[in-house]
């Protein structure tokens, strides 16, 4: 046990570019499905990282933009299958918002295929791993978000920082 030892410098040698995907998953289905992928020892690239929300209905456009703003190359939102939502119908709201997300991204010059909404149940560890690998492969083909992220970063009037602004609740 060591206390507070200074971190090693740098990040260590990684690949030149590894697609970064922020996955925002509902607690009841998709997050459980992702856990099952782990329990089944299925593999997917380390660039995909999951943030847990209680329901996919919690995902606001600001979260998706924030992820791209912070340098993500893709965003994956996961919810329960239609009819299976733990909160009755949150996933239906997410499905409707998908259209908003896509149009929003297009306005920023971000390919809408960088955003994906998937229904993954708690029993679908294999589906999650498949989707994760598929999406990362697709994003690899698209290349890094790069300059588009820069454009988004400079876009005025968006409160995406964690502190302050209307989105700061």
């Amino acid at each position: 046990m060591t206390e507070n030892v200074t971190a090693k410098g740098g990040q260590g040698g990684g690949p030149a570019w590894e697609p970064k995907v922020v996955a925002i998953f509902c607690n009841w289905c998709s997050y459980t499905g992702a856990d099952l992928a782990g329990i089944s020892r299925l593999k997917y690239p380390a660039g995909l990282r999951i943030v847990r929300v209680m329901c996919s209905g919690r995902v606001s456009p600001a979260f998706v933009l924030k992820a791209f703003h912070e340098g993500a190359d893709g965003v994956l939102v996961g919810g329960c299958h239609p009819g299976d939502c733990h909160y009755l119908e949150g996933n239906y709201k997410t499905l409707k918002r998908k259209l908003v997300f896509e149009r929003l991204l297009e306005q920023f010059g971000i390919e809408k295929t960088r955003f994906r909404l998937e229904w993954i149940s708690g029993g679908e560890g294999d589906k999650f791993a498949r989707v994760a690998n598929e999406l990362i492969k697709e994003i690899e083909a698209l290349g890094p978000l790069g300059s588009v992220a820069e454009r988004l970063r400079q876009a005025d009037g968006l409160s995406l920082r964690a502190e302050g602004g209307a989105g700061s609740a």
Partner: peptide
């Protein structure tokens, strides 16, 4: 931004997204 979910509020989740993205 008047509606806030305790334990999963905007600031908390946005800071988490920041966290997973940063290198």
């Amino acid at each position: 931004g008047a509606l806030r979910v305790r334990h999963f509020d905007n600031r908390q989740l946005l800071s988490q997204i920041e966290g997973v993205c940063a290198e």
